[in-house]
Structures are given as structure tokens and as C-alpha cells.
Design a protein around this nucleic acid. Sequence first.
DNA 1: ACTTACGGTAAGCAAATACTTACCATTAAG
DNA 2: CTTAATGGTAAGTATTTGCTTACCGTAAGT
Lengths: 105, 105
Amino acid sequence: MSACEKAFNALGDPTRRLIFEKLRDRPLAVVDIADGLSVSRPAVSQHLKVLREAKLITMYQKGTRSICQVDREGVLAMRNYLDNFWNEALAAFKLIAEQTEKDHE
Amino acid sequence: MSACEKAFNALGDPTRRLIFEKLRDRPLAVVDIADGLSVSRPAVSQHLKVLREAKLITMYQKGTRSICQVDREGVLAMRNYLDNFWNEALAAFKLIAEQTEKDHE
DNA sequence: ACTTACGGTAAGCAAATACTTACCATTAAG
DNA sequence: CTTAATGGTAAGTATTTGCTTACCGTAAGT
């Protein structure tokens, strides 16, 4: 279930979260992502690389522009991880509750 | 929706993810978390503080031991964020798809 | 062909952060 | 009361990592 190790690493950085959220509403070129942000374009490029390797975004060429968009794979992987985590935590909690109940009777 | 800023930061670190996952199956004392990990106990304490402030775990005293367990608040906040994100991304995608369809007729 | 727009990569720097050792406080047990 | 167990905090170090400038490559426009 640690297919999303990289995804958690990637979204651990506030600037990358900003970029990620910018792409939620529409695909954007690198240059469009960069302006409005307080960091340089090369910095953005580096962040995009991390997001790409985490499968949180995909990119394709369109002329000289590199268009970025969110990648369902990474997003769903994280969602799945958290769902799973929570279900198992809940199950474990119930098991322990039953156990301690037994101890008290 | 950025109630989980801290949660993403917290789970951005691999050691903290390890600790977090250790707690999925059962509550543990700090000392129990520390052994098995490759870092010192004080390091664990510091990580626990971060996880606590991110509302990913809660702690309570039991004698000299501090028992840690997962906190639903943080987990559900992240899950919610990702659900929301994905829904909005999907909606945006459809909107754009419809738009470009129009352009082609 | 020349120029402009776009963007990836490298090297170096600066800031953040994860880790260690040392120390102290609290609680239970002898 | 003394000792052992547990764990939080502080100070300092070291590693990581995010950022910048500089440079180069590619694709479109003139």
C-alpha cells in the first residue's frame, strides 16, 4: 500500500501543494504555473518533476509549452491508502474494545 | 479545506509515516514505538509532537507511559481533502471537455 | 536564418529539519 | 526514600532540500 510513499513526500511541501491545487481546475503550462508563485520558474520545474514522479501530475507537449494536469493515479492511490488505513484502524479499535470488555466481565 | 496542511507536512516524512502506520493496528507507548525504529527515542518524541499538532494522533498518560493512538480528525480531514480535490478536478475536466466539444461543432 | 518563447538541468547556496547527546521531571516499584 | 522506567526539552550538528543563477536545447514565429 506504500505505492504512494512518493505522493506523500511530494505533497509534504507547501509550494508543491499550491501547484497541485492550481492544476485542480484546469491544465496549465509551466510558465502559467510559475507566475503568481513567489518562486522562480526553474524551481517550479523541479517541483513538477517531483509531482510527476509521484504520479500526481502528467505532462504533455503542445508546441513549446509543457502542459501539466493532475494524474488520477496518484490521487486515487492516496485516497485508497487513507481509506484502507482508516478502515483497519477502526477494525483494530473494535477488536481491542471487545477484548477489554471481556477482561471486565 | 487546508485544515490538513499540517497533516500533509507531517506525513511527508518517512519516519513519521512509519510511526503512524505502527499505530494503525494498536495504541503504543512511546518506548514501544521507538524500538524497532532506527532513530533514538528523543527523535521519536519530536516526531510525535508533529503528528499530534497535525491531529493525526492523540496521546494520554497511563502511569509513566504515554500511550499514542491515531486521531480520526486528521485522517478524515485528509481523506476529505482528497475526495473534494478529486471531485472538483473531475468536474473541471468535464467542463473543459464539453467546452472543446462545442469548439469542434 | 534569426529571434523569441518555453522549459529542463547543473552547480552552488541558504534555509529547514531530522537527528544526537545531555539533562531534567514525573511516576511507579523496591 | 531510593531506584528504575518513561519520556519531554534544549542545544548543537548534520543532512536534506528548496531556491537561485547560468546555461543549453527545442519549437514556433518573423
